[in-house]
Write a protein that binds this DNA or RNA. Sequence first.
DNA 1: AAATGTGAAGTTGTTCACAGCT
DNA 2: AGCTGTGAACAACTTCACATTT
Lengths: 197, 197
Amino acid sequence: MYRLSTYLRCLAPLCEQATQTISSEALAKAAGVKPTQLRKDLAYLGTFGTRGLGYDVKDLYQQITNELGASRLRPVILIGLGNLGLALLSYRGFEKEGFEILAAFDIEPGRRRNKEIKRPVYGMNQLAEFVRAHSVKMAIVTVPAEAAQGVVNQLVECGVLGILNFSPVVLHVPKNVMLNNVNLAIELENLSYFIRE
Amino acid sequence: MYRLSTYLRCLAPLCEQATQTISSEALAKAAGVKPTQLRKDLAYLGTFGTRGLGYDVKDLYQQITNELGASRLRPVILIGLGNLGLALLSYRGFEKEGFEILAAFDIEPGRRRNKEIKRPVYGMNQLAEFVRAHSVKMAIVTVPAEAAQGVVNQLVECGVLGILNFSPVVLHVPKNVMLNNVNLAIELENLSYFIRE
DNA sequence: AAATGTGAAGTTGTTCACAGCT
DNA sequence: AGCTGTGAACAACTTCACATTT
């Protein structure tokens, strides 16, 4: 569930300090949620704190890590090396959470980009082979809107099961494929909607 | 509400074609939602379609545009010119939805960035003045995690009411300020969580 | 006949209140 | 006494079923 990574991030610094235990109230405050919600979330994982005391920091950290499957490094590929794609390639946050962008794909792999790229860049014709060879299950899509559905079809075809899409279009995928949309303009729209004076 | 911009995007191409009218079923399919949900959403806006026929495309487009307040160009500023900040600066999607990034701010405004920037870049000391002078109400924050809360405090201080935050930290703002978080790692995390075999 | 608008039912997620450990 | 775990109340959102209009 989407709040777990937040809890994990709040827990990390405490883990390094010698903090043994934390109450739901304190952690909830740090994470910006209600204590009861935090407890419900953790209870759902079968996590057990100690009544009258709180949760063991290290133990809790470990349990959430397990639940998220973040113990192993999860491979991802990125399709579309425009401005946004390039920025995401060098975004440190992904690896901090246990993801590794193995490679990038673009229709113009050799195009001059004014920045040194730290990952291999392939043409779209090599997609299928790469995905199968590395059993890639997740992809980040940052191609132009017109190209997005085509790319997604290819990915699905190759066996990719999770797609994080940044193109501002409604995409269609089979039921067994999970599609997660990030639409930057819509995020701004939401703000805008709530602050009109 | 967050689905309205999707409807708008689906409607736009129909508007240009001479399509007079569209049924909730057709539009819902294009937008990837259930027809009943679409109708509820539109009914909530007080929009009226014609029974037996559908909705008038142009009229609907206009009503949603009004509701979103997208008729005027809404000014935004961007704080933090790292990789992601730069990418967002040249992201065309914002202006397509009626937002204009007026300027960018950074602690090192003069830093060499290997890309031509089309907006003025100022130092943080000029933030307050600029925000007041242009009555900016929205800001996009793409600074490093450590700096985020400080920057947000400054923004709130200056009177900014809506903040779109990309830093992976839990930020605290007064109740009258709307904070919208985009955490790229969490989006991937969600995918990952649902596709484990 | 076709398609909307909407009350009612269903579903999901959040908060409360408090019993029960330590 | 302090703090967790959880059933029950509550709230928000989604879907259904169908009466109603063109």
